[in-house]
Amino acid sequence: MKQELICIICPRGCHLSVEVKDKTVTSVKGNACPRGEAYAKKELLAPARTLTTTMKVEGGQTPLVSVKSQGEIPKELMICAVQYLDTLTLKAPVLVGQVLVENLLDTGIAVVATAENLEQNLEPVA
């Protein structure tokens, strides 16, 4: 079976033409780099995405901090993951890269801060 996919690894958006036989990918065409082939295989067999969202911060300069999953999580977990993170409240200060959740919904993937949120009344670095 032949399937058309658009690679989303980078903004280039290569149009991939993928052959699938018995739940295995037999050929990938149209990719500009090897990451496209890997993407096609993963996308058809176990699609995963990086999650970006926000988490609540208490005592910070702003009410939230932006966060991301430090790697991809299964696509179908995206909404559950946001709902889970919404129940947590962090305490300022939060620094860029700080691990906030070590193992997001048993995916083995951590959640890290992508911005800083220092304590109120403290000057931010910039």
Binding site: C10, T52, S66, K68, V96, T114, A115
Partner: peptide
């Protein structure tokens, strides 16, 4: 691959 805030942080 970075998020927007990380990109801004790196640039600074």
């Amino acid at each position: 691959e970075l998020t927007g805030p990380e990109y801004a942080y790196r640039a600074l």
